[in-house]
Every structure is written in structure tokens, then in C-alpha cells.
Design a protein around this nucleic acid. Structure first.
Lengths: 125, 125
DNA sequence: GTGAAAATAGGAACGAATACTATTCTCATT
DNA sequence: AATGAGAATAGTATTCGTTCCTATTTTCAC
């Protein structure tokens, strides 16, 4: 990977904020310094930086929503190879919730846990 | 809310599967029974059913990815009013991970916890 | 400096989801 | 059972985040 001005700039922007920015926010910031950087470049760089572990992409899953007709307090695990989703019991208890409220100052109303791994069938292949 | 044929059908489909389907999968299934049901109707009904608590929508968050330039093992909490994201320590430990592997048969490689609530500022207003 | 490979800018394309609107359907009331 | 008001739908257009494409520019090993 080559060390371009654009790459430096994007990495700089994303490292010097704690606002967990969106791609287009990064793009806006970048344009203040380099007015004709392209949005595609920002996306490509963010993806590349993520592969290198310098950046973490949140909500990176597929963009399609999925629906569960059996509501109730359970969580999910997604197979990283075939995409199969299974139900998982909730491992987050009241004590954990209170700890999070203490640390963040947020008033917690819900949580969601997603697990990732290989489903039994994909482990065999 | 009126009890339309389309509503019955969509609820039926989503309740009689455990595959956590996408909206367009539900749409395909629905068309087998009612060939000119519209995709917009499926989306609207799924949204409505979710509001009523009959269906849970996974990955419902905003469609925009967000990026974190300080990678490392931490999780996030999102303010439900203003969207502000803050970091949260990980409450999932090794024992929980092993429990999930036992129950599901998946080999777990990662997990993500998202918390939702009100940030300190939004609690005051 | 030179050249080949990699990266970029700009714009087109894609796809999931939503918005719009004329028409149809539901259901409380009679 | 008939009526009518308003809620829901079908079909289509549109939005918007993201990815793809390609001619041009830039980087860097030599």
C-alpha cells in the first residue's frame, strides 16, 4: 500500500476524533484540506484502513435488515461463511447493565449482542 | 390497524420460519400466495408489526456505517435521541463465550455489544 | 530521472428502503 | 345487506449510502 496524501489525511481525521464519524463526515472534513478529494477515495481508504486494523467499522454487517417473528429476549449469532443466523441466550445481566450506566452516564434502555463465528456445517468444510 | 389479507400473510410468513428472513425474502414468499402484493407493503407491514412488538427487526440502526479510529476491544452505546456514540467497556467474558459455543454449536470468533439509551445531556431535556 | 504499477477524481451505477398517489378494501354504522 | 369515510394497497418514482468504472495522475523501486 502506498503512502498517499489522501491516505494520510483520512487516517489523521479519523484518529483525531472520538465521534465515531460517518464516511461522509470524514469526506467533509477532508475536503476542507483537500477540496477535490473524492468520496470514493474516502470509502476505499476507510475500507483499506479497516483491513489493516487501524480503523474499526461499526455496523459493518450486510445492509439488509432481517426480521424475527419470534420476539422475546434473545440474541443472535451470524455465521461468517454462510450468513445463517441462530438464536443465542442473552449473556448480559443486570449487574453488567448497571456497570455500563455507571461508566458512561447514559441511562440504558436496551442492548443487543451479536456473535460471529462458524456454524456447525461450515466448520466441517 | 385494519386486519388486511396482506397483513395476515406477512405475519404468517414471518412467524412460520426461524431463518430471520430479509424483507425481500418475505416478499418472494408472499408473492407465491398473493402474486401482486407490493414490496412497499411488505416493508410497511414489517415496520408496523415491529412497532406492535410482533416482530423484531435486527440491524435496524441507521444505514450509515460509522468508523472508529481508536481500535481495540471496546463496545458502544448509542443515544436514542441525539445519536451520539460513546465507548463502553466489554461486559462479555470468556465464560459467556464458551456458554454460547456450547448452546449453539457455532465456533465463536467475535462478538459485538451495542447498548441503547439516553446520553447525559438528553436525559435533562 | 524513468517506467510500471498503484491510487485517485469524477461520475455512473447499484440496491435497499422510503415516498407518493390514484385506486381498492375494510369495517362501523345503519 | 348497503353505505361511506378513511385506512391500506399496488405500482412506480425517488432517495441515499455505497460501490464500480476508467482515464488520468501519483508514487516509488530501480
Amino acid at each position: 500500500m502506498r503512502n498517499t496524501k489522501q491516505r494520510q489525511l483520512v487516517l489523521d481525521i479519523v484518529r483525531n476524533t472520538d465521534t465515531h464519524p460517518t464516511a461522509d463526515w470524514v469526506y467533509e472534513q477532508a475536503r476542507k484540506v483537500m477540496p477535490n478529494i473524492s468520496l470514493g477515495t474516502v470509502y476505499r481508504l476507510l475500507g483499506r484502513l479497516q483491513e489493516e486494523g487501524l480503523v474499526v467499522q461499526l455496523e459493518a454487517g450486510s445492509r439488509k435488515s432481517r426480521f424475527d417473528g419470534q420476539p422475546g429476549p434473545h440474541q443472535h449469532i451470524v455465521c461468517e461463511r454462510c450468513g445463517r443466523i441462530a438464536d443465542v441466550p442473552d449473556v448480559v445481566d443486570q449487574a453488567a447493565t448497571e456497570r455500563v450506566q455507571q461508566v458512561t452516564g447514559y441511562r440504558v434502555s436496551a442492548h443487543r449482542v451479536e456473535w460471529f463465528g462458524l456454524c456447525p456445517e461450515c466448520q466441517d468444510t
